[in-house]
Amino acid sequence: MRIVSLVEMKTGQAGIVKTINGGPGMVARLQALGLHPGKKVTKLNSIFPKGPVVVEAGRSRIALGYGRACRVFVEINQ
C-alpha cells in the first residue's frame, strides 16, 4: 500500500482516491464529476511530461490539468 498523486501513478494502474488537496471549488467540482475519496480510479494516460492526466472513474472519463492532478492522492497496491 502506497499513497501517490495521479501524476505519479502509472498508466493503466488503478487505485482508491484518498485525499484531494485543493480549495473548496476544486473539491466540489471533482466531487460532482464522481472523483471523490473512496472512489476507484484508473489512470488512462498522461499527455507529455507536465501535461494533463486522464483518469477513468466509474464510467466517466475525466481530464485533470497537471497542476490539479498533482494534488489528488490515491492509494495503490504495491
Partner: peptide, 10 residues
Amino acid sequence: TPSLIMEIPP
C-alpha cells in the same frame, strides 16, 4: 488560471 478539470464524453 487553475488547471483543467473536464469530462471527456464517449
